[in-house]
């Protein structure tokens, strides 16, 4: 038992981190928010070249097998960089099609997803942890929808709604119509697994977002001077940042364990703590940056605005707490 990333896993995360670190992601996010998806598509292709998307597909379809630990470490880096787009949803579609085991469907979509040729997005039934909205359907080549009745369709994305994070766009796929791809209990079962993966990867993204917010804020309080001293020397500031680090450090091992088991309770616990830690990091960042933290100009806003939607996406804290206690809740 060695509960730490292997050297290989750490190297993979470092590769992504350095790729994203030099990709000027903030400019990509701002373009994405303005509806210019080109730079985001270009970055997706470069990410695919690292093998990231292959981690959510079986080897038979150009994938590397479904490797949740590696994929989760990768998604921490996507969060840290503030990567826009339906990253979780594309990986979730890949998991859905892998789990479904329909060869024709898998052949049709998986190699393209693995190669990073396009984004995909999806909605799942509420029971699988999904919400009513498909993320960034306007930028995705395919919008999948699984109904409560267990029908999987390629759905028309519907009207696009704005999110509090301008880099996220929401749409409610049409309830009927579109190409019926599969139906039955197998779809419902695959959707349940997919919901867990989406929740896990969102948790990973949250952890990365929280770490980015903490790092930027620590940097700021070291150089911002008031009363003749860096504000980071004041105890009130230090203690807020210590609490932020504490929440992130105790969320991380929950994420690792969830990635190892993908069990519902483990994944819910990871999502709960990673989501809360990221949101807490955002609130600390906002407070400690003072007024400049409340501006759109500062790149900090790109992470600040992500923290809350990601905390709630694919399982609100309340839903995750209920899941953790599901086996022991009195009837």
């Amino acid at each position: 038992m060695r509960f730490l990333p292997t050297d290989e896993q750490s190297d993979f995360a470092r590769t992504l981190r350095s790729l994203l670190g030099s990709a000027q992601v903030p400019a990509v996010v701002r373009a994405w928010s303005d509806g210019e998806h080109g730079p985001g598509h270009e970055l997706r292709s470069r990410l695919a070249a690292t093998g990231l998307f292959a981690l959510a597909a079986p080897e038979a379809y150009e994938g590397a097998g479904l490797l949740a630990p590696e994929l989760s470490l990768g998604f921490v880096e996507l969060g840290r960089a503030g990567m826009p787009g339906p990253v979780v949803e594309s990986a979730a579609v890949s998991v859905l099609l892998s789990e479904l085991g329909d060869e024709a469907l898998a052949k049709r979509f998986l190699p393209g997803l693995v190669a990073g040729e396009a984004w995909a997005t999806l909605t799942l039934p509420g029971g699988s942890g999904g919400g009513p909205y498909a993320l960034d359907a306007d930028a995705a080549a395919h919008c999948f929808a699984v109904s409560d009745a267990g029908e999987l369709r390629l759905a028309a994305p519907g009207e696009v709604l704005r999110s509090t994070d301008p880099a996220r766009r929401l749409s409610r796929p049409a309830a009927a119509g579109g190409e019926l791809l599969a139906a039955g209990p197998a779809v419902t079962r695959a959707a349940a697994v997919t919901g867990r993966w989406a929740r896990l990867l969102t948790a990973a993204q949250c952890l990365g977002v929280g770490e980015a917010l903490l790092a930027r804020t620590v940097g700021y309080v070291k150089q911002r001077t008031q009363f003749g001293a860096p504000i980071g020397s004041f105890q009130a500031v230090k203690h807020r940042l210590a609490d932020t680090l504490l929440a992130l450090e105790f969320a991380r091992p929950l994420l690792w364990a969830a990635a190892l088991s993908t069990a519902p309770g483990d994944v819910a616990a990871a999502k709960l703590r990673c989501g809360e830690a990221a949101y807490r990091a955002a609130m600390t960042a906002l407070r400690l940056h003072g007024a400049v933290g409340y501006t759109e100009e500062l790149d900090l806003s790109l992470w600040l605005r992500k923290a809350r939607p990601l905390r709630d996406a694919w399982g609100t804290p309340s839903a995750c707490r209920a899941e953790v206690l599901r086996p022991v809740t009195p009837g």
Binding site: V218, K222, P230, S233, V237, K238, L241, A242, L245
Partner: peptide, 10 residues
């Protein structure tokens, strides 16, 4: 704050 985050002593 001081040893893990590298904030200045005060």
């Amino acid at each position: 704050a001081e040893r893990l985050l590298g904030l200045p002593k005060g």
